[in-house]
Nucleic acid binder design. Sequence first.
DNA 1: AAAATTCCTGACCAGTTGGTAAAGATTATG
DNA 2: CATAATCTTTACCAACTGGTCAGGAATTTT
Lengths: 207, 207
Amino acid sequence: MARSGATKKVTRIQIEKTEQILNAALDIFSIHGFRGSTIDMIAKRAGLSKPNILYYFDSKEIIHAQLLARLLETWLKPLHHLQPDGDPVDEIRSYVQRKLEMARDYPRESRLFANEIIQGAPHFYSELAGPLRRLTDLKAAIIQSWIDQGKIANVDPYHLIFSIWSTTQHYADFDVQVCAVLGDKADGRFEQASAHLDRMFTALLTP
Amino acid sequence: MARSGATKKVTRIQIEKTEQILNAALDIFSIHGFRGSTIDMIAKRAGLSKPNILYYFDSKEIIHAQLLARLLETWLKPLHHLQPDGDPVDEIRSYVQRKLEMARDYPRESRLFANEIIQGAPHFYSELAGPLRRLTDLKAAIIQSWIDQGKIANVDPYHLIFSIWSTTQHYADFDVQVCAVLGDKADGRFEQASAHLDRMFTALLTP
DNA sequence: AAAATTCCTGACCAGTTGGTAAAGATTATG
DNA sequence: CATAATCTTTACCAACTGGTCAGGAATTTT
């Protein structure tokens, strides 16, 4: 049975194995989505038996929930960095770059997120309507104040943020398509994307 | 047994029911992906029994394959419209608008596509590397020629196209997130997006 | 309206899936 | 080193899944 709360002591093996399982589960869930993944797939990937997985996590749903819970934290971090001081255009440009780096370095997390949202966020809606919305409101207000001060061009702050999310995550979620279309030019795709997106958002925002 | 090729005559009922089934299947597959969907779900949605579904389509995979086959056609149509004559900036702007209209009017198709790509395009890769790539190459060349003639700003044609795909499809695939973040402003999301994307790509492309 | 064809259903099957129970193997602890 | 606690496996189960089949119902054709 999975350790619940603070009642029992956490052993070395528990730490190792839960990490191992969550890592394997991220591989599987990020590709097949929740319903398309099986505990056996996760077990095989983790090099453990199915009942052994269920010794550490009470159910498939709990593994998934734990991955999503970890995810939001990682996911919102780059947006937290967007601060009112400093040059506005540079602030947004470097947010774009951080987001693109995340797409490059954490594609599994991006796909897990995308899978969940596409399916209507059945396990994640409260996080969207709660923390994500609050943070977005906060940062949209900062962007709006820059607009009001004439420091950046007049854009819809929310849709600017959507554009940043979509263009950067595209390079994680749709990587197969990007590579298929680029062919042998695909090797440098993240550098090309970096330059392109920098140019695009600079052009949009420079007053 | 499913009618194969031109050997047998196609009846009225066959036309109605196959349409009904494909429509229901699009509902289901676009939400749950291939592995996450069951024939029973499709049957229930179509108001038919499971064996009845399998009377018209030999297998679950064939239903999915047929949806994907129809999809590419619809999907590439807006890009076909991008023509070398006419004002370059306007050509691209209206491509963006057509793509956004598709995201608004055909969100299920967009999600079916997204699900397939996120999972590594297991049933669709040849379409990506074949027709999609060829068409993209063609249109990228047109865009490049506009750049060479100094009619639009210097951008990477491929990544410009990726930006258009990602920003527009975002409003279909991530609709739940968009609505959750926008709250009561969500009603006008497509009009806002239209104005925002028009501004963004105009700013990017105007020389 | 009879015959031929097409359509539909209930019962069924074999394989998969999430999850359990109990007993054995390993590790930590007094 | 004995003993308690933790960890792992084998065997298993009930529900679900894709798909089949034989026969009955509806429809079309003659």
